[in-house]
Design a protein around this nucleic acid. Structure first.
Lengths: 210, 210, 210, 210
DNA sequence: GATGAATGAGTATTCATTCAT
DNA sequence: GATGAATGAATACTCATTCAT
């Protein structure tokens, strides 16, 4: 008898995942407040109450969606930063990393994450993200830049964390500004333009011009 | 109901303004969706329907609040940028402007404006702000930087608009990051720190070091 | 000074009539409950409160509209009945009167009157109409038929009021049925068809076939 | 969905039916526009939202009430018409059918149906009724009269549908007139009087007097 | 664990009407 | 007499959540 019934263990897992997927879809589309549990249940193809069985309430479900998005975003960002260890051409390396970071920033899942965090306006949720993602990316980037400074390829003078912050700011500040609070999709060519500008300015400021 | 005579002509104006003030208060506190027209009416000390008499519906009221905040923000930002025309010490001047811009950015009304725009997630509202504020600040800043480049005090090489964008990004990108999506208030000392860092890096990149 | 001010006596009368006209328009279009005093005021080009100055409240205004429509309808119906006094061809005379009555019944103002009475579902209003119109038409018709019976041109046997009622029923019952509760406009050809049928049947029953 | 077990399953049906019953009561009493969903919920002894769970919105609920009334009215009317197939006394048979039709017409549920249709003034609703009831009664009556004509008991000469229409008109036209747009309840004696008059006139016109 | 039915608090909006000028 | 502003009550409808099976 075991395993034969529909809705057995894998069924449960599938339903749980289906709910999470549906929740991401609906939350992203409508924002936290306008998203209805009904709509999520319909999208997931489950009964409304099944959501409550799995997640307790709307906010907890939202938290899980956020957490999953954060983990994904962290992984993508860290992978981008880790490109900065080679010994090849510095500008090329920075550009490559910058392009990846820009791509991460513009990725629809990252955009969704930012939009969702704002739509909920619940500060507590930010802790989830901060611990999981934001800070660790900055730290990793600072570490890489410090290594490059030790190797004499950058002239940082000050805290590498500041240089890291500014490299990030040159990228995301400009992207954010051009994204019009997330309402405009930035084409890849423009991502590249912003990145090239950022790297150029960053190297004018911190490159070793000796 | 403040005013001297009950129901006099000034009473009308006062009511309208009282509604706008109350709307700002409640919208800022609760976000667009959670803010109730009831709460705004109570806060303003008027009947709920008076709000509808004046503004038609919730969204129009919201739009007027946004528009007012935009106008104020534009004025503050332009004033900051206009400090950049003197012939005094360049670093001091940039720092002064940067401090003012940072202050603008961290001003609770600007924060409220950004929070509100995001809470409504209605892209059309952004047009109001873009036309009224965002673009014009960047243009003004670019113009000032171009003048400084002509005077030989900056070495831009490229489009002054990009330098302006990057000066803004160094400021607001870092501030935004530290503000944790608006959930953390940045103390003035930290605003200064960010500004000093931004100016230092900006001048390392674009200053005339000949 | 007298007569020079805008809004003098004729102005008042005009406004009153404008309100009545607008009320007819809006009430007819939307029914009693859905019609808004606001809409009437706008249509009439007066301030809402002016309506209250003239008519007291919504229901009184409605009553006046009904009364006016009733008077007009009575006049039209009586004129039709009065055609029945000649000594010409009986069938032609009945048909002529029937056509006029059918036309009255299908007239948009009569339809509006019926629709309005029903939309308000306030029985008291019917008294206005009954006294002013409905009963008197039937009485007049009965009197004419009685005269025709006395002249040997009809064979009534019973109460002429019953014959009158049935002549009316053959007309309006069929028209009402075909009008689909007022949602279908009956074309003139069909009015004629109904009338011809009614007269034919009426004469088969009450004509003098000796 | 309906089941035999007490408690749960039947509870659902009961609630649904209770809502329909309450809706009929309240709609009949107040008309479509003045009837409140709140009042219906209270009358039915359910939560207001349960109504929305079952019927979606006020208009859909109204439509279901109309449909149910239409079905009932059709059944009653058809049963009356079907009495017309015997071979007994023609006048007696017509009178019996007429009485039943008059009774149907004056039945409070039929009156409610007409009142409701008018109170909503939504033409689309009429289609429900027309398809379900009105036309089919006329058709059935016409068929019976045609049969009687074939049997030589009536002399129709023309379209039996017209005779059917006129028989109906003689009944309902007179009843409608006397009902004062539904505000007056017609006593049974008066229903009989109208019917007898109608049958007499109908036979004077269409009976076989050879 | 999964479901369908049911709930009560809460929403924006509309209405006829009155007040003060 | 005419007006614009203001009112409070009422409305249809939505929501996240719980109950009973």
């Amino acid at each position: 008898m075991r395993g034969t019934r529909p809705g057995s263990r894998t069924g449960r897992i599938d339903k749980r995942q289906a709910i999470l997927d549906a929740a991401f879809t609906i939350f992203s589309r409508d924002g936290y407040h306008l998203a209805g549990v009904d709509a999520i249940a319909t999208e997931a193809g489950v009964a409304k109450h099944t959501i409550y069985n799995h997640f307790g309430d709307k906010e907890s479900l939202f938290r899980e969606v956020i957490a999953a998005l954060s983990d994904q975003a962290l992984a993508r960002n860290l992978a981008a930063v880790e490109l900065l260890d080679g010994s090849g051409d510095l500008a090329a390396m920075l550009t490559e990393t910058g392009l990846r970071l820009a791509e991460c920033y513009c990725d629809e899942r990252s955009e969704a994450l930012r939009r969702l965090l704002r739509s909920a306006s619940r500060p507590e949720l930010l802790d989830i993200v901060r611990e999981r993602a934001a800070d660790r990316v900055n730290d990793a980037l600072a570490a890489r830049l410090a290594k490059l400074a030790l190797a004499g390829r950058l002239v940082l003078d000050g805290d590498p964390a500041i240089a890291a912050e500014q490299f990030g700011a040159l990228l995301t500040g400009a992207l954010e500004n051009r994204a019009r609070l997330g309402t405009r999709k930035i084409p890849q060519a423009e991502q590249r333009e912003v990145t090239v500008n950022a790297v150029e300015t960053f190297l004018r400021a911190f490159g070793n011009h000796q």
